[in-house]
């Protein structure tokens, strides 16, 4: 464990708490893509199957439980309490276009051709693109509540911090995980456009609005 990864995980945890806080305080999940949230459940469940057979650390164990539990809780809130505030008409990204290619790529690129390793690869590739329905929704509406942008910013920071973590691990432990690194770079890249608007508008106290 190094500081970059710890802060990255903390940002990830914070992003989820921000999202849950947004839903409870605004009593709404407006502007949140159900599809992205559902993809995150798929990501966590397929990746953390190793809860049953691999012990890493107490930290790792509880974080995994938190990510699975909180992502399921978010889906539950979106399907029950806040269902009326959800607008499927604007959440139109076709997730088959993500699930299909991720399945194929996971079958080709994995560390071992075994069910759990293929699912692990799948979860890494799927996480890298799971934010796309959310960014697509944002693009369609052209604006976002400030709290929603803080959620996305925290997620982006989480991904960005994993990059110095890998550089650090390469030099200190000689560890290289090409699958995680490739997918992670793609994932971080997806946030660049968002971050430009976040820094130039939201952090200057303006509303998040995309140029027409």
């Amino acid at each position: 464990m190094n500081l970059f990864r710890f802060l990255g995980d903390t940002a990830h945890l914070a992003s989820i708490l921000v999202l849950i806080h947004k839903m409870h305080t605004t009593k709404s999940c407006r502007g949140i893509s159900f599809k992205t949230q559902a993809l995150y459940v798929a990501v966590f469940v397929t990746r953390y199957l190793d809860l049953f057979y691999r012990w890493v650390s107490l930290y790792n164990f509880f974080m995994k439980l938190f990510f699975i539990g909180s992502s399921c809780y978010i889906l539950f809130l979106m399907k029950t309490k806040f269902r009326p505030t959800q607008d499927p008409a604007i959440d139109t990204f076709r997730i088959e276009y993500l699930l299909g290619p991720c399945t194929v790529i996971a079958l080709i690129f994995n560390y071992k051709f075994s069910p759990t390793e293929i699912l692990w690869s799948f979860s890494i590739f799927l996480e890298s693109v799971a934010i796309l329905p959310q960014l697509f929704l944002l693009q369609r509406t052209g604006e976002a509540e400030t709290i929603t942008t803080h959620y996305l910013a925290a997620l982006g920071i989480y991904r960005a911090l994993y990059i110095p973590n890998w550089i650090y691990r390469y030099f200190t432990e000689g560890v290289v995980d090409p699958i995680a690194i490739t997918a992670g770079l793609v994932q971080t890249g997806l946030y660049i456009d968002f971050f430009y608007v976040y820094v130039t508008k939201v952090l200057q106290g303006q509303k998040f609005e995309l140029p027409a």
Binding site: R5, N165, D177
Partner: peptide
């Protein structure tokens, strides 16, 4: 040893 199988990150 092959560290790529460690899967110790979240």
């Amino acid at each position: 040893s092959d560290h790529s199988h460690k899967h110790d990150e979240l």
